[in-house]
Amino acid sequence: MTTPEHPDSPTPPVPRRDWLLYAGMAAVGLAAAASSYAALQDLAVRTGWWPQLSWLLPLTTDAYAMTAVRVWLGHSTRNARARAWAKANAIGAIVLSVAGNAVDHAIASHVIAVSWPLIVAVSAIPPVVLGLLVHMAHLRSLPPASPAPSTPAAEHEWQAPEPAPAAAPPPIPPAPPAEPKRRQPRRPVTASGKRQTLPPGPTDEALIAAARERAAAGQEPSATWLIKTYGIGTRRAGRIRDAALTAPAPAPEPTDAPTQNGELALARGQT
């Protein structure tokens, strides 16, 4: 006779099956499948599918949703990535079925018209669903990601002691203050102490005469010419140019004052 290893541990009760719950789920499932099947088949016919193959669109959508829910909630799914991917695909399949039903009813009520983007979207459902399911099957086949178990031998292995912290280096003494810069001694003053005088330049009269000669030769006595030729300032060059271009006033003619006075006296005596 065998005894249980832990007689005091409580055994979780086995939940009973609620057949009424299952019956309600089956009824709602059949009604939803029939209505969604009819709407999606009609949408396939409206978007150009052959009537003989229009039943494949609702079959693809419903099978996609059922497979994703099975992988999401099934106990056989051990990989967390596969379970997360299946959850996202299950929600996406339900949204896809709802959107297909809504579009078919909108077309039947003449709310929207069948356009080429709608045709492309409906035609792309089977290949896209196939690719998503293949990726889901690949993730489900991967082993569960679990941390590496620690062995007892590894726990009792000798571990090297941690090295003692290194002593702090001694403080660096402050640098000595920098010496003040020494000023360069001034150059000795020469014995004379006089500045070198420059030779005198040409006078204004000479410059005016030179400018007039240039004008008489048929060339313009400009200020630039005066500056480059004689090395004078701009203002002085302008003044010399204006004076040279201004014609000099004619000198008064000399008169013989005593002769004119004598002639006047002689004329008065004759009268």
Rank of each mutant, 00 (worst) to 15 (best):
Asn79Pro: 04
His75Val: 02
Asn101Gln: 11
Ala164Tyr: 07
Ala215Gln: 04
Ser115Val: 08
Arg17Tyr: 06
Pro254Thr: 12
Leu226Gln: 01
Gly238Ala: 10
Ala90Val: 09
Val45Met: 14
Pro199Asp: 07
Arg212Pro: 07
Asp18Pro: 00
Arg70Asn: 11
Ala243Arg: 05
Ser97Pro: 01
Lys87Leu: 12
Ser35His: 00
Leu96Met: 13
Trp55Thr: 07
Ile107Asp: 02
Asp8Ile: 07
Leu20Lys: 08
Ala99Phe: 00
Gly131Thr: 06
Thr255Gln: 12
Ile94Ala: 15
Ala88Phe: 09
Asp62Ile: 03
Ala26Val: 12
Arg16Trp: 02
Ala124Cys: 06
Gly201Ser: 15
Gly233Leu: 05
Val14Gly: 00
Gln260Arg: 12
Val98Met: 13
Trp72Leu: 08
Glu253Cys: 00
Met25Gly: 12
Tyr230Trp: 06
Ile112Leu: 14
Arg78Cys: 05
Val98Pro: 04
Pro180Tyr: 10
Leu30Met: 06
Thr11Ala: 12
Asp8Glu: 15
Pro202Glu: 05
Ala211Phe: 02
Gly131Leu: 09
Arg140Thr: 14
Ala237Ile: 03
Ala244Phe: 01
Ser141Ala: 15
Ala88Thr: 14
Ser54Asn: 08
Gln270Ala: 12
Ser222Cys: 02
Gly238Glu: 10
Thr203Lys: 04
Ala82Leu: 09
Pro12Val: 06
Ala84Ser: 11
Ala160Thr: 11
Leu198Glu: 12
Ala216Thr: 07
Ala44Gln: 01
Ala237Val: 05
Leu53Val: 08
Ala257Lys: 08
Ala34Met: 02
His156Cys: 05
Ala153His: 07
Ala243Pro: 03
Arg241Pro: 02
Pro15Trp: 02
Ile227Ser: 01
Pro58Trp: 01
Ala257Glu: 14
Asp204His: 08
Thr234Asp: 13
Leu245His: 02
Pro149Leu: 12
Ala247Trp: 07
Ala247Met: 08
Pro254Tyr: 02
Ala39Arg: 09
Trp72Ala: 13
